[in-house]
Design a protein around this nucleic acid. Sequence first.
DNA 1: TCTGGGGTCCTAGGACCC
DNA 2: TCTGGGGTCCTAGGACCC
Length: 421
Amino acid sequence: MSYALVDCNNFYASCERLFQPHLEGKPVVVLSNNDGCAIARSNEAKQLGIAMGAPLHQIQALIKQHQVALFSSNYPLYGDLSARVMRTLEQLAPRVEIYSIDEAFLDLQGMPAPQRQILGRTIHQQVKRWTGIPVSVGIGPTKTLAKVANRFAKKSPKTEGVLDLSDPQWCRKALHQLPVGEVWGVGPRWAKRLNQAGIDTALQLSRMPPPLARQQFNVVLERTVRELRGESVIPFAALPAARQSIATTRTFGQKIHTHDEIKEAISSFTVRAAEKLRKQGLLAAALHLFITTNRFSEQDLQYKNSLTWSFQQPQDDTLTLLTGAHAALDAIYRPGYRYQKAGVILLGLVSAQHFQPSLFAPPPRLPNSRALMRTLDGLNQKMGRGTVRFGAEGPPKPSWGMRQLQRSPAYTTRWSDLPQV
DNA sequence: TCTGGGGTCCTAGGACCC
DNA sequence: TCTGGGGTCCTAGGACCC
């Protein structure tokens, strides 16, 4: 087997810089929703010591001192540029698995080494030329080793953005240099446990007997060990798997405490989730609702709770989903707390096309539900999100709405935001 | 005053079956 | 005084990913 992993460098930061080229070579940071913490950093920002996930209020001084360019996250922009990168890859490589917004695996099975190198170089140059986004390419006999190769391609200037670790000798050298916690599939918890067992590098992990990995941890780590040894056990997936859940969750722009405010918030989350559900042609059998106070706050009284509400039959009708969400909220809401976050997760998803209704349950749909939902979705798609709203959602600009003070324009997805040259 | 959002998979334990 | 064995399904919680 042979895989390539193509990974966009500092993706969100690169997207922002693409439309503000004067920031080339300067530190750039993209913030999470509510401008809460750093979720993407340019290399210059990383060099300043700004950590992934660092809360903004803890790095303010650094930002001022080095004039770091700050951006609120702009997902329409990143989604659109991601699609351009993926379309480019699909033109250059035979089989592409889109793994995340900024990463794709390529299946290079049967390709000889010199050709792999040429393909890697071509991808590195063409994606940059056609989309403006810099990428790194890592190649290896398993997905996990392609990930390792990618990491070195990104960090070591000698590689010029492309590294093939198919040669076992080079592979061993790389694994020896790689801390175990940076292996794909090994998170902070397991890294700590592995370190305690004397396993500090990826090479040491690759030498752990797979059955032991399974016994001491679980089958996931066993697979990682096998992959590090060159045995390909994580398959290539050309087609995306069926969705298991659809979530809309938010931290509020400011704390809210009244039942009415939370009801508005969870209503609009439910409306959004239902839109996503119908867009993907799915029905949901249950709705999970959670609400929570600020877990970081030491002075606030803490409360969190959640409830899963099951429907008689899987559905995609917003009114019915709202009924479930409201009932769930009434069951778990407690007055007297400053709520910070809430969310709605749709579960038990089945295809609307293939769904077989129950023989005994009453018909779940409200009259004309299908036509009504189609009309709402059509209007909102054509005229912009929120053109037609449910009363339960409250006003269009609610008190609990997101803080996004540094938002860049939707350069590529909104006519009014087109950049002018 | 200030700490994101959207996902997946695995496992243990409880409820249930015969 | 004494109460089996083998199995499935579901769910919550914990780990991981980007």
